[in-house]
Nucleic acid binder design. Structure first.
Length: 822
RNA sequence: GCGGGGGUGCCGAAGUGGUCUAACGGGCUGGCUUGAGGUGCCAGUGGCUUAGUGCCUUCGCAGGUUCGAAUCCUGCCUCCCGCACCA
């Protein structure tokens, strides 16, 4: 509809001109934030549009509720797609990105989102990324950044290394190429230093439980004990980590990770050396992620060496096996086949004895005959007399104490979380501000280290490494010849603190002013997809904690509340280009307008769940908005008999809508708005103008959360976007009236029903009602008459004899009106 | 395997002890509007039956609790999403 389009453009212009969405200084602050987008060349997709429809609804709602809303937008502008476009289409990433951002801004403005555009940031802008570099050097100074050689994930397709969080099922999270493991010297951030706090503080967050569980799983804390096993015929010790010290007496072998450097030492010069080396090479070559799969056949090899169990002196063989990982724990485990399924399978395969040390209360276990490991709680047996007979969970605590007392073991906590690898062998990112000097070693570079624009995008290797002018520098310390680091930072570095920069986005002297952070942070409501559960959301939490410890800010957590939007499918499948089931937001806006698209996205269903897009479903919302728009031509009110019932419904619905919005149940809020609008529509002649106008203003304020343009157009006296949220007038909510309303609806239904059954011409309808109800029906007689198409007459049953002596009328329902059609 | 969330009418989706054939929207059928199409409006949309609102059936399946269940309990089937040899 052209009219909607014109209205939308008109108000978008006005909002911008009058700067009505800029954050103010007055009122309680409320920071609402959507995960900022990567500006791809394809423009907004439906997921973005949905994300912003939610955020904008929140922002507008909070603004109406009197909050000083801070609602910024920016662009996560560094990243691979721009560089890949450069390789493919010979367009410079900078140009590509700038064009994309321009397009994104245009499209977002076309949606009518109420951002404070003054706060705009672009991470590829030197005024932003120089603070990345500044932060990196701070991290370096505090020993939170370090360079190390380690086995790292390499994606051949992307031509770069990846962080652990960016590998999903052994595949690159971006391109789904199989990831391989390489030994490389790279830059890491010491996120593991915060593992414990990151885990503990998850409990404080008002986040979706799913995301919290994912974070807990990812951090993967396990509490246990490190136990020293002496090596037989040696003074050396082998440290193992276990969470089950209660099974220590059941150890029948020890297993080491094949690549554990200690293995080579152990077998050096023995007859096993050659065979082991062969096996180790084979295992290590296997993809790390395949090797770690549960279904993977357990394989191992005896090393020829033995270890001594410190608690009972048992001499047990040492194996290496593919299921033991070097990165976790100590890279060596004590194996208790009776009570661990992996160990059990391994023991059966290599004919190692199985010794039961925990037994269930009800029956006995036999190591020879067991079909699988017994892993449930039970009673300690066949162990030291100090512990035999104890409940095993109790025994864990006691045995740890015992080991610590005897200095053979020590309490320990291990995490699955690894340090964050941030080096990327790509051009379009923040240069890591480091210089390598032959004399001085690793030296912080003078910042900003600007990304040189002249670069060649051949698709082979990092263009920065080939840029002689960039690489060769003087050492900032000794002025001697030195080389620059040519890797850039993982773009998740950029997004780990962007929400802080919004608070002071134009500061040239500092990363931000602490007072401004204090004013706006933390983010009160963050909105985005669940795909960042253990990526961005974990990194950002880490940054805030690290920055707090560096005295830069005072908060512990960046995002107080988090809402995860669900996916939008079409034809039962996730939208994708290959399936050809993409819904283009801009095309939809062309057809129906932004208000319709936004309202429909929120009306489709629970925004937290996966929902189904329906090309025809949007029509309903479109009709709804057109219906509201038709109210601009006010109809003359003939009577005011529906005023009270309308006001009752209005207040009841607004009350419910308010809590619906607070709980992100926009679909319910919109359906209640529809009910109100339908009621007005069906009763417009029976609602007095004063009540209509007053109520309609309230409805428009509510509607403006979803369809701001049309609300603005219909609202009189100032901006609806700056209006106060309607107060609920409790005293106007009248349950009896609602009941009467229902009665009338039922009567109309009955009349229509009967009229349909009687296959003759009907003109008149006589209704006999209880004397006390006479007035209700009498008051609504015109309405009933209009809606049934019959001439109505209402009589009291008391007078029934008089008007209906033959008893032609029949009851509609027990105690309800009787009626007679003629 | 573990953890979390689901399965409601032709479809999307509300509803968590009575007001439920079940909000809201879509679709479909009939009627009106219209030169036609679109739009818009009205009515209907589980079955049977009826001057009559009565009976039966229905909220994944099967049982149970209750005067009463889509809603509570038990078992099962099924879909989705996380985690998964972590010692």
């Amino acid at each position: 509809m052209k009219e909607f389009r014109d209205i939308e453009l008109k108000w978008q212009k006005k909002w911008e001109k009058d700067k009505i969405f800029e954050a103010k200084d007055k009122g309680k602050k409320c920071y609402i934030l959507e995960m900022f987008p990567y500006p791809s060349g394809f423009g907004l997709h439906l997921g973005h549009t949905f994300n912003y429809s939610i955020g904008d609804a929140c922002a507008r709602f909070k603004r109406a509720k009197g909050f000083n809303v801070f609602y910024p937008m920016g662009y996560d502008a560094f990243g691979l797609p721009a560089e890949n476009a450069a390789i493919k289409e010979k367009i410079h990433p900078k140009k590509y990105t700038e064009q994309s951002i321009k397009n994104f801004i245009f499209q977002q403005k076309r949606l009518g989102l109420s951002y404070d555009w003054n706060r705009l940031i672009k991470t590829c802008d030197p005024s932003y990324y120089k603070w990345n570099q500044w932060l990196f050097l701070k991290f370096l100074e505090k020993n939170l950044a370090y360079r190390a050689k380690a086995p790292v994930n390499w994606c051949d397709n992307c031509g770069t290394v990846l962080a652990n969080e960016q590998v999903e099922d052994g595949e690159c999270w971006r391109c789904h190429n199989k990831v391989s493991v390489k030994q490389l010297e790279q830059w890491f951030l010491r996120i593991t230093k915060y593992a414990d706090e990151l885990l503990k503080d998850v409990n404080k967050l008002n986040w979706d439980e799913r995301i919290k569980i994912m974070q807990r799983n990812w951090i993967g804390r396990s509490e246990g004990v490190e136990i020293d096993f002496k090596l037989k015929n040696s003074d050396e010790k082998l440290k193992v980590f276990t969470t089950r010290p209660d099974t220590l007496w059941g150890v029948t072998f020890v297993v080491m990770a094949p690549e554990n450097p200690k293995v080579a030492e152990l077998v050096k010069g023995t007859k096993y050396e050659k065979e082991l080396k062969y096996f180790i090479d084979k295992v290590v070559i296997e993809e790390k992620y395949e090797r770690a799969a549960e279904e993977k056949e357990k394989e191992g090899l005896f090393t020829g060496r033995y270890a001594v169990n410190p608690v009972n002196g048992d001499v047990v063989p040492i194996y290496i096996a593919n299921f033991v990982l070097l990165e976790y724990g100590t890279g060596a485990v004590m194996a208790v086949p009776a009570h661990d399924q992996r160990d059990f399978e391994f023991a059966r395969k290599y004919k190692i004895p199985i010794k039961v040390v925990i037994k269930p209360k009800e029956y006995e276990l036999d190591g020879e005959k067991m079909m699988r490991a017994y892993v449930d709680p039970g009673i300690v047996v066949n162990s030291d007399k100090l512990f035999n007979g104890m409940n095993n969970l109790e025994a864990i605590k006691e045995i740890i104490k015992y080991l610590e007392k005897n200095k053979t073991g020590k309490r320990a906590v291990h995490y699955k979380l690894r340090d964050w690898l941030i080096s990327r062998q790509r051009y379009w990112g923040t240069p890591i501000p480091i210089v390598y000097c032959d004399k001085c070693g690793i030296v912080p570079a003078d910042i900003p280290v600007l990304l040189p624009e002249d670069a060649e995008f051949s698709g082979k290797g990092n263009p920065l490494a080939k840029n002689e002018k960039f690489v060769h520098v003087k050492c900032p310390e000794c002025d001697g010849n030195a080389k620059r680091e040519t890797d850039t930072m993982d773009t998740f570095f950029d997004s780990s603190w962007y929400f802080l920069r919004y608070c002071d986005n134009k500061n040239e002297k500092k990363i931000f002013d602490a007072r401004k952070i204090e004013k706006w942070m933390p983010v009160d409501q963050y909105i985005g997809g669940a795909e960042h559960a253990v990526l961005h959301l974990l990194y950002a939490r880490f940054f805030v904690k690290a920055m707090r410890d560096m005295g830069m800010l005072k908060i512990d957590e960046p995002f107080t509340s988090l809402f995860n939007q669900g996916m939008i499918n079409k034809n039962g499948a996730r939208m994708s280009k290959s399936k050809g089931n993409i819904v283009d937001p801009m095309e939809t806006i062309e057809k129906y307008g932004a208000d319709t698209l936004r309202t429909y996205l929120l009306f489709m269903g629970d925004p937290g769940k996966t929902r189904e897009w329906d090309d025809e479903g949007i029509e309903g919302v479109y009709r709804f908005l057109k219906k509201i728009y038709s109210f601009r031509n006010k109809t003359k009110s003939k009577s005011n008999i529906r005023d009270k019932i309308f006001e009752s419904k209005l207040n009841k619905n607004i009350k419910e809508i308010t809590s619906d919005i607070e709980e992100f149940k926009f679909n319910l809020a919109i359906s209640k708005l529809m009910q109100l609008v339908n009621f007005i529509y069906n009763n417009k002649e029976n609602i007095s103008l004063g009540v209509f106008e007053n109520s309609f203003r309230k409805i428009l304020v509510v509607l403006s959360c979803f369809a701001p343009h049309i609300s603005e157009e219909l609202y009189e006296g100032g901006y609806v976007s700056l209006s106060k949220w309607p107060e609920v007038e409790e005293d106007k909510i009248d349950k009896n009236l609602e009941k009467e309303e229902e009665q009338i609806e039922k009567l109309i239904e009955d009349i229509n029903h009967v009229a349909k059954l009687v296959k003759k011409e009907i003109k008149k309808c006589f209704v006999y009602v209880l004397p006390k109800e006479e007035k209700i029906y009498e008051d609504n007689i015109e309405d009933i008459s209009r809606r049934t198409g019959f001439e109505m007459k209402i009589f009291s049953v008391a007078d029934k004899e008089k008007y209906d002596p033959e008893g032609k009328s029949k009851k509609t329902k027990a105690g309800k009106p009787a009626l007679y059609l003629e």
